[in-house]
């Protein structure tokens, strides 16, 4: 009775034209085609999407949250990357 489990897929949905695909959750399916169909049934029953991406969960590589501090450190001390770093005289408009 113990058959092999169907692989896990992550589901990404574009809710409307012009927007990014956004992660919405995951599901099990035997193959990509079935994953897309299941994603339609599970995640778009109320017109939540016009486009679906699925990717097998095992293919996703993620950064490690434990290293977050060191990993994002390079961006941390570069305040000059933000426009608010610069002083603009009051007389200057539209900048």
């Amino acid at each position: 009775m113990n058959t092999k489990e169907w692989p896990l897929w992550e589901v990404f949905i574009r809710s409307k034209q012009g927007l990014d695909h956004k992660h919405v959750g995951s599901l099990h399916a035997a193959d990509a085609e079935m994953a897309v169909q299941n994603a339609r049934d599970v995640y778009t029953r109320r017109m939540e999407g016009i486009s679906i991406w699925v990717v097998e969960s095992k293919h996703i590589h993620a950064s490690n949250p434990d290293d977050a501090t060191a990993f994002y450190e390079p961006a941390n001390d570069k305040v000059y990357r933000h426009p608010t770093f610069y002083e603009v005289p009051a007389e200057i408009k539209n900048m």
Binding site: M1, T3, A30, M34
Partner: peptide, 19 residues
């Protein structure tokens, strides 16, 4: 669950064969 087992197995076999 039991009555659906063959469907799950068949779908997996089909996917593997296609791959």
């Amino acid at each position: 669950d039991q009555e659906g087992a063959w469907v799950r197995e068949a779908a997996l076999a089909h996917a593997e064969k296609r791959a």
